[in-house]
Design a protein around this nucleic acid. Structure first.
Lengths: 346, 346
DNA sequence: CGGCATCGTCGAAGCGCTTCGACAGCGATG
DNA sequence: CATCGCTGTCGAAGCGCTTCGACGATGCCG
């Protein structure tokens, strides 16, 4: 375990020179810097994290809170945590996992002990208590997701409104004029993050604005697309396109549910999965998607957080990630009406 | 941000007294301790992590390496990472996520900079390069899983041999005398962790020892149970019980694969899923299982690691977690032979 | 009742780094 | 030629905590 002193001795300079040569925070002559670098390499010198933290009053650590509700999707979470970690490393930060029963305690502790320089909050609920905590803490916090009360917070999320409009526009472009949508279960909408609402509202408004017939259905507790599909076909009999902004289970069962009515995708029905963190392009018919991109969100969140830490840019703001359309061929021009004959009722 | 000095002043004692009162490492009179505690509480004092680390030469941080191969199951990983975190917190450690492209770099760095006091290695391969690294590092490392060369390492894993014997014994108890087994794809066995091999060997040996007819089949690349089931029914026509030690996809497709032969569980066939990290009790027929329990493994691993750090217990050893049998009713006495008639061939 | 162990407390020395102010040396400037 | 402003380097002061040795004050023993 070599220390600065060892390096300083080996290079024949003072320890402050070593520090400056390594950090580049003051100009050091080429020759001296080379000597220091050489000595450091030979001694396999690595600055002790604790000493650096104490002296610099910065830990180069970001905390991540990911409360694990029983009903949250672990794999999606892991993906987000990983993306945060990757981006953080690229900015010379490490990532601390805060996943205790009480996520508040972790945030408080990491702030109070200066263990982490800031926090990334994942899996944000509409009425997330961490939002209130963040407002009272004078500590850099970034939310991946948008709580209902987002004033005074830094948030990053997919632009669900734009995603809804993008989906609708794409379908209109392809010639559709009657679009159904399957949303999240009502309980989810009520309890959870507000993005389903934002998507929903934008979908309806944009359909209205563009003069498109539309209807929305909500799956019930059993997470199947069968009910919503039935309902949509009833309320919107000439529906030729379907937008999914729903859970993975529902999306996965959409194709069979349609097929039970003799409807195949994309021939009889165009389908777009929007705001989906799960893959939809490996289903039996790959579905076009507007992904909820973990990488984009997390990278933006970490960038924001690091800017707040390193450059004091702490003003509250919400960053919306522009939606990206991924084409897998599940959208086509609507089939000419008429041959809607063989209805195998479910 | 109160410091020890503030607390010392407020309590009218020296800073060392504060430290000892808080840590309990020397005896302090009841009255003084109370005074210190009160002052600390009033000032909302929390020792600065960095200062503590530097002075105590201990970070109270555990690193977790979880390399994300493309083919690893994120949700299982997350579960393990969470369990590590929980157990670590209960022992007053925090958890650092190391998930860079190069997991070795993370381990080296956290050791060299003393960022973490030790490492938990997840998702261990048979020929995991992290094993070699660990051997050369003089740094506490615990593996959750057992690499092929485990000499000189601390490892924790489910006792797959015992799990295999337990499954076989259970089936024999229920009256079965002809048992099939579906293992992992051959590629997985070759490439991956050696636990499939351990299970396999124990299964065959124990069946032999107890005089039970048995056969093993390996799924191919498409991760379906159809092939293996067909094969087993051919090679072991009077098979009445099936042991699964395989991937989630294969296990999930086992019931339909059997049903395609007109075989229902548990009436015509008893089934046990052994060494499964994924749930098998929520399938259409809940399957008895011997779980690969994230909590048990991770808790044991963290305990081992913390013992190594705090109490210097560094001798290499492998801890095998005793298997636990979970009964969901998928094992019954074999049906009386004869009425094996209506064979719908697949 | 003197001597000795014990208990409770204090002071000070670090832990290894960053960073501020100081200053020597130098060429450029007037 | 005196002066100014750089540039490159050094010394030292912390950062806030832990921990060791020291030392008065007690209580107990013979």
């Amino acid at each position: 375990m070599a220390t600065v002193d060892d390096v300083a001795k080996a290079a024949g300079v003072s320890i402050s020179t070593v520090s400056y040569a390594l950090s580049g925070k003051r100009s050091i002559s080429q020759t001296t810097r080379q000597r220091v670098l050489k000595a450091a390499a030979e001694l396999d010198y690595h600055p002790r994290a604790s000493a650096r933290m104490l002296a610099a009053n910065r830990s180069q650590i970001l905390a991540v809170t990911a409360p694990l509700h029983a009903d949250t999707d672990h794999s999606v979470h892991m993906q987000f945590a990983m993306e945060v970690t990757k981006e953080a490393r690229s900015l010379d930060y490490d990532t601390l996992l805060l996943v205790h029963d009480d996520p508040m305690e972790g945030m408080r502790r990491s702030a109070a002990t200066a263990l982490a320089d800031g926090v990334v909050v994942l899996d944000v609920d509409a009425h997330d208590p961490r939002a209130d905590l963040a407002r009272t803490m004078d500590y850099p916090v970034v939310f991946v997701g948008i709580p209902e009360q987002s004033e005074g917070l830094m948030c990053v999320d997919l632009d669900f409104e734009a995603a809804a409009r993008l989906a609708v526009d794409r379908l209109i472009e392809a010639g559709h004029s009657s679009i159904g949508m399957i949303s999240h279960p009502r309980i989810t909408i009520e309890r959870e993050s507000n993005f389903p609402l934002r998507f929903l509202a934008a979908f309806e408004e944009h359909c209205r604005a563009r003069g498109i017939a539309h209807a929305v259905a909500y799956p019930d507790g059993n997470h199947s697309a069968v009910g919503p599909v039935d309902e949509l076909l009833r309320t919107l009999p000439d529906m030729t396109a379907l937008v999914l902004n729903t859970s993975s289970d529902v999306a996965n069962s959409a194709l069979p549910a349609l097929f039970a009515h003799g409807i195949t995708v994309p021939h009889d029905m165009s389908v777009i999965a929007a705001g989906a963190a799960y893959p939809t392009h490996r289903l039996s018919v790959p579905l076009d998607r507007i992904p909820l991109d973990a990488h984009a969100s997390c990278a933006a969140a970490v960038d924001l957080l690091v800017a707040a830490i390193d450059r004091g840019m702490r003003e509250a703001r919400t960053v919306l990630i522009a939606p990206e359309y991924q084409d897998f061929g599940s959208v086509r021009a609507p089939a000419p009406r008429a041959e809607k004959t063989a209805q195998h009722s479910a």
